[in-house]
Design a binder for these strands. Structure first.
Lengths: 110, 110
DNA sequence: ATTTACAGTTACCTTTTGGTAACCAGTTAC
DNA sequence: GTAACTGGTTACCAAAAGGTAACTGTAAAT
């Protein structure tokens, strides 16, 4: 029984967003990149609980989905910088509300 | 090497929020409940792609975390209503931004 | 000659998540 | 007396996600 109220993953705006940033790590990665470009090692150091394998995978997906940009320099040792695309930056209000909620509800006195 | 910039899952506001609503289904469940209480069957009908087993699990976690309330009526056949708590309602700005972003970016002409 | 640096990749394994199908209870409708 | 209704639970299996450890390549430093 499909009524107009049924959640359709292709049309529900929340589902659509979750398909892009629904992973366990993606919002945090985007949050780390929100104001600066970062090298791979910097992101890894800022999110020490994510393994490099998974970080690589998540970055690839975010790049594939147009949310971040990967710039590789032809240097030795290699240097790679990740940054938000304009599309990625459009998520700022979402991430800001997430941050705000976390701060208001758990981090008041820290 | 832990600097003040390192993401600490206990202190990062985004991580904190993700621990509560970070699952694949939780934001959608909260979205379905955002304006109405709903019976178990109603939620299931609105999110047909989630199995009842997983829906039960997710609802239990949301209840455990204080985001939703479960009210059971002593009737036959049984009736159970789920609704947002005040704490759950405090997520409205986050869900609204998620919804807004999804609408602006993918659903403009529908 | 060996080590270090960086940004990965790969093989392999474990954990988590999710699905299916069968079953339950108590009352009402057929 | 049998089926249907609702809101689950249970056992079992499959798929997805995630972790670890070892390895790669090239140049510079020791």
């Amino acid at each position: 029984m499909v009524t107009k109220e049924t959640i359709n993953e292709l049309k529900c705006p929340v589902s659509i967003l979750l398909q892009l940033i629904g992973g366990k790590w993606k919002p945090i990665i985007l949050y780390v990149l929100r104001s600066n470009k970062r090298r791979f090692g910097e992101i890894s150091a800022r999110i020490p609980t994510i393994s490099r394998k998974v970080l690589t995978e998540q970055l690839k997906e975010l790049e594939r989905d147009g949310l971040i940009e990967r710039k590789q320099f032809k240097e030795i040792p290699p240097r790679v910088e990740y940054s938000l695309t304009e599309f990625g930056k459009s998520l700022a209000p979402v991430l800001n509300e997430m941050e705000k909620w976390g701060n208001e509800n758990f981090l008041k006195n820290q």
